[in-house]
Write a protein that binds this DNA or RNA. Structure first.
Lengths: 305, 305
DNA sequence: CTGAAAGCGCTAACAC
DNA sequence: GTGTTAGCGCTTTCAG
């Protein structure tokens, strides 16, 4: 791997000059003869020189890298892509650290520190996990974006749920059932459902796994609703499967609407769903974190988005 | 960020000693008084010292990082997770470089070189893209694993297709249609289909988008098959949607089998499919690349897996 | 405009 | 057992 020293020797100038030219400082503060500039550039090219980011990072004390820590699951891919593409625009790159039995959140954070990353994104769904973070971690002053995929700010779960349910109401549906589940995100979506039902003076009805002896799907059918609002797509899809099995057609018998995790367009019948803008979330997530990095806030930051 | 120098000062020893202790060399070649060892360790702990991977990388000339280059799409998440988790076991981490309009394969490769990564994985589906790689890249001697998700070795597309079609035959189906598509992977799967049909003396029938004026789905129905072998899940799912629309039931009318990309278990009816072992592919992919890195083959390597 | 020199944080001979 | 010294590849004053 050839270094500036070698190109200095080859071109017959000092390493400093090479450094200046290769960093384009002759276009800024310094003035260097075009002749020299050209020679240096050509030699660098000829020798196949590639800048060493490692050194830049060492000198600066931190690398142009953002670590994403998560228990990676399929739906995160677009988010990550958003981060990665946006990061690239600013010359940053993305490093992944998987949570697993062999790697706790605290370990993952330390790994990120070892690489002297500029920022960290923790994609964790439940807040309890954040509470477990070793307080000592914050002394390093690395900005952390607690990108809970479920938080307001990036994506308003409750508000979007309201939109979805409102839509069902606007179609004339009155008996709207909510197929729910226990989780922070689901809770926010359920709240949206409740808001709209109340606002329209409609009696809410939330069914969950365990709501009925016959199984929740059967319960849905028995309830004979106009529409079913499912708090996430997997739930909606499993309902559709059950209905298919029973030869109950959607939307003939009643409507089913899902919520944002998966390729619902693949279902039969294609599922109406509130799509979460994952890719965009990733893009914005980076912009957000980057602005914190750029501002160089001194105090450790745990951004709540 | 505190350094070994500071630990040395605080503990009243030289930086070398600190380095030795923190690298556990007192447990190997060198002997250092337990007293000193303890003091150093305690001080390091107290000051919140975190090793600097950047420096290790700089000194070694390469970082313990594997770059994954791809146009990231959803189904790759499990592969990446496989890489990431396995890499972690060996103290390596994963860096992502997204291909996009702003980043060509060659640019991505250079970025990887700038970070002095130990190895590169290029997940690209079609071989033409590999042909475009700047030959100069290979001078850096970084092992590249051309993890074509579609290649034999990691996953035998043709053989798996044979298994799938064989299964249909074993169920007594005779008129088996193949719903195909143009791509390297699809081609391999189609070949598997052809092999089995021929072996059983059955007439093959391949339908593709454009095979019929009425649309390929309609063509499938008109063909009145016993079973349909779809070369990938999206194709199968879109067929299921059409069938649902027509109120043609699967598997009552005929069977539909898919092939490996997506959460087919979510479809209604749940789609029988050949699942590709993506996560495992990622794990093996890392092991494979790592063995090349460890062996330190000098010549540039483009592993075909 | 260009070169010498110090330093980033750490490793690894090589002496004391 | 422990300290000195010389880099790793580059940036950045500070003099010429």
């Amino acid at each position: 791997m050839i270094s500036m020293k070698e190109i200095a020797a080859e071109a017959g100038v000092s390493r400093t000059t090479v450094s200046f030219v290769l960093n384009g400082r002759h276009e800024r503060d310094l003035k260097i003869s075009t002749e020299v500039v050209e020679k240096v550039k050509r030699t660098a090219e000829k020798l196949g020189y590639v800048r060493n980011e490692l050194v830049q990072s060492l000198v600066k004390g931190k690398s142009k890298v953002i670590a994403i820590i998560a228990h990676f699951s399929d739906f995160m891919m677009p988010i990550i892509r958003g981060y990665s593409e946006t990061a690239a625009k600013y010359g940053y790159s993305i490093s992944l650290i998987s949570l697993s039995e062999n790697c706790t959140l605290n370990q993952a954070l330390m790994t990120a520190v070892e690489y002297r990353v500029s920022g960290i994104v923790v994609m964790t769904l439940e807040p309890e996990e954040k509470a477990q973070v070793n307080p000592g971690f914050f002394q390093y002053g690395i900005p952390v974006s607690g990108l809970d995929v479920n938080r307001k700010g990036f994506f308003d779960q409750e508000g979007s749920a309201e939109v979805a349910v409102n839509y069902l109401v606007s179609l004339g549906h009155r008996k709207i059932i909510c197929l729910g589940q226990q989780s922070v995100v689901a809770g926010q979506r359920i709240q949206g459902y409740l808001n709209i039902m109340e606002k329209n003076g409609l009696p809410p009805c939330i069914l969950e796994d365990g709501s009925s002896h016959h199984g929740v799907h059967e319960a849905v059918v028995e309830a004979n609703p106009d529409a079913v609002f499912c708090v996430n797509d997997p739930l909606a899809l499993s309902l559709l499967q059950y209905l298919y099995h029973r030869r109950i057609f959607v939307p003939d018998a009643f409507s089913v609407i899902g919520f944002g995790n998966l390729g619902a367009e693949l279902a039969s019948p294609s599922l109406t769903t509130i799509r979460e803008p994952y890719y965009e979330t990733g893009c914005l997530g980076f912009e957000n974190l980057y602005s914190i990095i750029r501002d160089g806030r001194k105090s450790p930051v745990w951004s709540e988005n």
